[in-house]
C-alpha cells in the first residue's frame, strides 16, 4: 500500500493525459463488449447481430442510393425546390433508425466520466465522436453524401454550395437529435412527468380505439358512394374483371 496517500506520481502533460484517456476509454468499450460475451446466450445474440448487418446495410445503402438518384433527377430537371422531399425523408429515417437501434449493444453512460480529470473539450469531443458512430448518424450522413453526389453529377457548379448546405443540415440534425434525447431524458427523469406521460399514452391508445369504433359505426350507417377518382382507378386496375368493377347499383 505504498502509493496510498502519497504524492501523485503521474505527471503527464495535459495532451499526453488526454491521449491516454482516449485510449483507455476505447479499451473500456472493448472490454465491456468482450465481457458481455460471457453472458448466457451472448454468442447467439452476437451471431444474430452479425446476420442482421446486411439488413442494416440495406437500410443505409437503399435510402442513400434513392436519395442520390432523386437529387440527380430533380436538379437535372430544374426541380430544385422538390429537394425538400428527400431531405424530409432523411429526417424521418434518421429518427426511425435511432429508435430501432437504440438498445443495440452494451455500452456505458458517458456522464460517469465527469468525475475523472477530463478536460471539458475532450469530454465534448468524446461524446461527439461516440455519437457520430451510431447507426442513425451513419445512415443519415450516407444519404446526404449521396445527395450531394447526385447534385454534383447533375450540375457540377452547384456542388460546393450543395455540400456546404448539406453539411450544415447534417450538423443541425445531429444537434437536434441530441437535444431531443437530452430533453426527453431530463423530462422523464421526474416521476410526475413519467406518470403524466404514461397517462397521456394510455388516453391516446384508448382514444384511438373509441375513434376506430365510432368511425366504423358511422361507416356502417352511411354507405357513401366511392369517389369518382377511386372508381376510375378500380376500372383502370381491373378492367376485365366484373367482380371488381364499381358496383352498378350505386349508379342506378
Amino acid at each position: 500500500m505504498a502509493g496510498i496517500g502519497a504524492q501523485i506520481e503521474a505527471d503527464l502533460s495535459p495532451s499526453a493525459l488526454s491521449a491516454q484517456q482516449f485510449r483507455t476509454i476505447a479499451w473500456l468499450r472493448w472490454r465491456i463488449f468482450a465481457n458481455s460475451m460471457r453472458r448466457k446466450g451472448a454468442v447467439g445474440e452476437l451471431v444474430a447481430k452479425i446476420l442482421s448487418y446486411p439488413l442494416l446495410a440495406l437500410m443505409v445503402f437503399g435510402p442513400a442510393t434513392g436519395a442520390g438518384f432523386a437529387s440527380y433527377y430533380l436538379v437535372s430537371r430544374n426541380m430544385d425546390a422538390y429537394l425538400a422531399i428527400p431531405l424530409w425523408i432523411i429526417v424521418v429515417l434518421w429518427q426511425f433508425i435511432g429508435v430501432s437501434t437504440s438498445a443495440s449493444g452494451p455500452s456505458f453512460d458517458l456522464t460517469s466520466l465527469v468525475r475523472f480529470p477530463l478536460r471539458y473539450r475532450d469530454y465534448l469531443l468524446m461524446r461527439l465522436s461516440f455519437g457520430l458512430m451510431d447507426p442513425p448518424t451513419l445512415a443519415g450522413t450516407a444519404c446526404l453524401i449521396a445527395m450531394s453526389l447526385g447534385i454534383a453529377i447533375a450540375s457540377p457548379a452547384l456542388f460546393p454550395w450543395a455540400a456546404l448546405c448539406l453539411l450544415v443540415y447534417a450538423v443541425c440534425l445531429i444537434l437536434f437529435a441530441r437535444m431531443i434525447y437530452t430533453w426527453t431524458e431530463r423530462w422523464l427523469a421526474q416521476r410526475r412527468t413519467r406518470e403524466l406521460f404514461t397517462g397521456v399514452l394510455l388516453a391516446v391508445s384508448l382514444g384511438f380505439q373509441f375513434v376506430a369504433q365510432y368511425a366504423q359505426k358511422i361507416g356502417d350507417r352511411h354507405h357513401a358512394p366511392p369517389s369518382p377518382f377511386l372508381l376510375k382507378l378500380r376500372t383502370f386496375w381491373w378492367p376485365s374483371t366484373g367482380c371488381c368493377r364499381p358496383d352498378s347499383r350505386q349508379h342506378r
Binding site: I8, A10, D11, Q20, R23, T24, I25, L113, F116
Partner: peptide, 13 residues
Amino acid sequence: RFVGQMYGLDRAT
C-alpha cells in the same frame, strides 16, 4: 486499471 489510467498513471504502476 481503467481508473488508474484515467488519472494518468502508467500501466505498470
